[in-house]
């Protein structure tokens, strides 16, 4: 099962490599990873997606908590949460395809953020499944380049990951 894990981390040199190292060292997968400092510059917030059964996720959260630099860990997928990912795509856009792509972008509530003579750069935001669906809708032939930020997320409601 896909899981979304959120980690509050000391913003120290090397702390990210400890998290990433833990995953490879213990044979856990990371499917996506996003990380940046929070409003408190001494802390980073890291969101990662991984797959595993309950037993594996329990071990992952315990092992993460064991890292000295990790302040807090939550499994977002356990509660009601919001997740978002941003994707930029460079697509072939000439002739009739230009209008076609524009329509598709509109349906997915995306934006065309750069226009070239034969290309568009498209921006799409949403849950990962929506981004996947957009890629599928467009088809491989049209796509020149894709870059995704990885998922970030937080819990709905009043509960928050803070120290």
């Amino acid at each position: 099962m896909k899981r979304l894990i959120s980690v509050l981390l000391e913003n120290e040199p090397g702390s990210l490599s400890r998290v990433v190292g833990l995953f490879s060292q213990r044979g856990y997968n990371i499917d996506s990873l996003s990380v940046a400092p929070t409003e408190d510059k001494t802390l980073s917030r890291l969101t990662l997606t991984t797959v595993g059964d309950d037993h594996k996720i329990e071990q992952i959260t315990k092992q993460l908590n064991k890292l000295i630099d990790v302040v807090k860990v939550i499994d977002l997928s356990e509660g009601v949460h919001i997740e978002r990912e941003l994707m930029l795509l460079k697509v072939k856009a000439s002739g009739a395809a230009r209008a076609e792509i524009k329509r598709c972008v509109d349906i997915f509530r995306g934006q065309i953020v750069d226009v070239g003579p034969t290309t568009y750069v498209v921006q799409i935001m949403g849950e990962s499944t929506k981004l996947d669906a957009f890629i599928e809708a467009l088809g491989d032939a049209a796509i020149l380049e894709v870059v995704r930020t990885g998922v970030c997320g937080l819990l709905r409601g009043e509960k928050s990951l803070k120290i």
Binding site: H55, E58, Q59, K62, Q63, N65, K66
Partner: peptide
């Protein structure tokens, strides 16, 4: 003392 040792 180490929670990650439990049920590993």
């Amino acid at each position: 003392v180490d929670p990650s040792s439990i049920a590993k």
